[in-house]
Amino acid sequence: MPTYLEPTEASATAFFMLGIKGPVVMLNLLRFREVADYSDLPDLAPDTPISGAEAYDRYMAHTAPFLLEAGGKLLFDGEGGRYFIGPEAEHWDRVLLVEQASPEAFMAFAQNKAYLSGIGHRSAALADSRLLPIVPQGV
């Protein structure tokens, strides 16, 4: 079963071709590794192994100031689980709703060098993810 951790060039192009004007909410579905994998990130690795969830918490703590600086905000952070309606075998550990001021603000945030210096915590944390842009009705 394929995993999804980063956008593809095609998905990024399609996102910007939507022509969204104004805010966009990103639905994040996250599945964590049992133990975070810092094997490619020795500079970020903690002294002792931590869980994927703990690594993601480190990512969120690092990310929060850059998100706010770009005009974004965390709307919801909750524990996931199995679907009520959906594939029975599929589950997500955490669900986030993150509002971005605009697609352009999101891209500026995602390319910020200081933000990128800590993105390895996300990579170490995640076994799989989904990111779905949601446009408020009437925008």
Rank of each mutant, 00 (worst) to 15 (best):
R94E: 09
L29K: 10
I20P: 09
R94Q: 12
A110V: 03
K73Q: 13
M17C: 11
I119L: 08
L131N: 10
F76G: 01
A127H: 11
F32L: 02
L96Y: 06
L96W: 13
P2A: 14
S102T: 12
A110C: 05
S123I: 11
F106Q: 15
D93Q: 06
S51V: 01
K21Y: 04
H91V: 08
A61G: 08
Y4V: 14
R130Q: 14
E104P: 10
P7V: 13
F84S: 13
A55Y: 02
V139Y: 09
F106H: 15
A127P: 03
L41W: 01
V24C: 08
L74K: 05
L18R: 14
Q100G: 07
W92Y: 10
V24T: 15
G22I: 06
M107R: 14
E99S: 10
S117T: 10
A124L: 06
A125C: 06
R130F: 02
M26D: 12
V35C: 01
L5H: 13
A64N: 02
A53I: 00
N28S: 05
R33S: 08
M26N: 13
N28K: 02
A12I: 11
I50L: 07
L29T: 06
S102K: 11
A64H: 04
A108Q: 12
I134K: 09
L74W: 00
E104K: 10
P133G: 08
T8P: 03
Y59K: 03
Y4E: 14
D128R: 07
P46V: 06
F109I: 14
G138S: 09
P103F: 08
P136L: 09
T8G: 06
L5N: 13
D57V: 01
A127W: 04
G80Y: 01
S117C: 07
A12E: 10
P46H: 05
